[in-house]
Simulated scan of single mutants.
Amino acid sequence: MTSSRPPSTPQADLRALGSALAAAWPPLQAEAEHLARTLLLGGHGRRQSGRGDEFWQYRPAQAGDPARDIDWRRSGRSDAHFVREKEWQAAQSVHLWVDRSAAMQFSSDTGLPTKSHRAALLAMALSTLLMKGGERVALTALGTPPRTGNLQLTRIAEGLTDTDDADYGAPDAATFLPHARAVFVSDFLGPTDALETAIATCAARGIKGVLHQILDPAEEAFPYQGRTIFTSMGGGVVHETLRAGDLRARYRDRLAERKAHLSQLAQTAGWRYACHHTDASAQSALLWLYQAVEGAG
C-alpha cells in the first residue's frame, strides 16, 4: 500500500531510522515477552502426541499399533487394549522471514503501530513461545541456522529492528532445512514471483508453513477522497489523482484478488494463510500464528 502523502523522511533517511530502531530492541523484546506470557497464562501450550517422556493420555489401540506400545496394565482393567501416548517433545526447526522493507513502515494514523512494528512484535513473541516449547528458531535475515536459548532470542530481536531500502520485501528459502517449518510475515503487496519461488522451494523440501499478511486498516478500507498524492514509502513510486474515491472499488477488487491468490498459494502447498490488521488485537494474531505453526509440524 502506498501513503496518501509523501513520507516525512526521504529514502536516504531509512538507514537513520533503522539505527534509531536498533536502539529500541530491548523494549521490543520486553513487549514480546509480555505478549507471549499472556498466551502461556491462558494455557495455550503445545499438546501433541509423539516421541517424548511425559505421559499425555491413553487411547484405544488401533490396527497397526505395535504390541510394545500397548499398556497391558491399563488394558487389563477393561476388555479393550489401550496405548499409552506421550506428549510430543522432539525439537523442530522453524524459519522466520519477516518483511523489513520500506512498505512495512506505513501507518495511516499516529495511534496505530506501523506494519513493521506489529510484524516484529508477533515474530518475537512467536519465537519466545516456540523456544519455551523446545523449538529451534532462525530469522532469515541473520543468515544463521535455527537455534534456541536467550542469546538466540536477543539476536532475533536485533535482526528484527533492521530496515530495508527496497519498496517491497522478497523471501528466500534457499537455506531452509528440509522438513522444517516456515513463517512468512509481510503485507505481501509487492510482486509475488519471489514468494511463489520460495513456497515452491519449501514444498520440494517437505517444509510446511504459514503466510501471515499484515495490513493497515486504511489499506483495507481505502478511505481516500478528492485530490490525493500516493507515494510509496521508499519514494520510488508517485501517483496523483483528483478523484481518489473513484479508485476505491477497483482497489478493493485488486486487494481481494491478491488475498485470494495468497490463500490459494498456501492451500496448494499445504500451508495456512491469514490476514491481520494493525488495529486488531496482537494477542489474537499471536494465538492464531502459534496454533498454525504447531499444526504445520
Rank of each mutant, 00 (worst) to 15 (best):
R46P: 00
T128E: 14
G133D: 11
G45E: 07
T114C: 10
L130D: 03
S107E: 11
W88S: 00
K115F: 13
Q62E: 10
W97F: 10
Q62K: 15
R77G: 09
A91R: 13
S127C: 08
E135V: 01
G52V: 00
K132I: 02
D53P: 02
L28S: 03
D69H: 14
T110C: 10
H95K: 02
D99R: 10
Q89T: 04
H95C: 07
G42E: 05
A63P: 06
M124R: 11
E31C: 03
T114D: 04
L122G: 08
W56P: 00
S93R: 15
A30Q: 14
Q62V: 08
R73V: 02
G52P: 03
L28T: 07
A61N: 07
Q92I: 07
D71F: 04
S101W: 11
L40A: 11
A138S: 15
Q92V: 04
D79V: 06
A63H: 15
I70K: 12
H81T: 05
Q92M: 10
H34S: 14
R84I: 00
M131W: 11
L130V: 06
A102M: 09
R74Q: 13
D71H: 09
Q57G: 01
A23S: 10
T114Q: 12
Q57V: 09
P60N: 14
P113G: 05
P26Q: 13
L130A: 11
A36G: 13
P113Q: 11
E54N: 05
A125H: 10
F82G: 00
P113I: 08
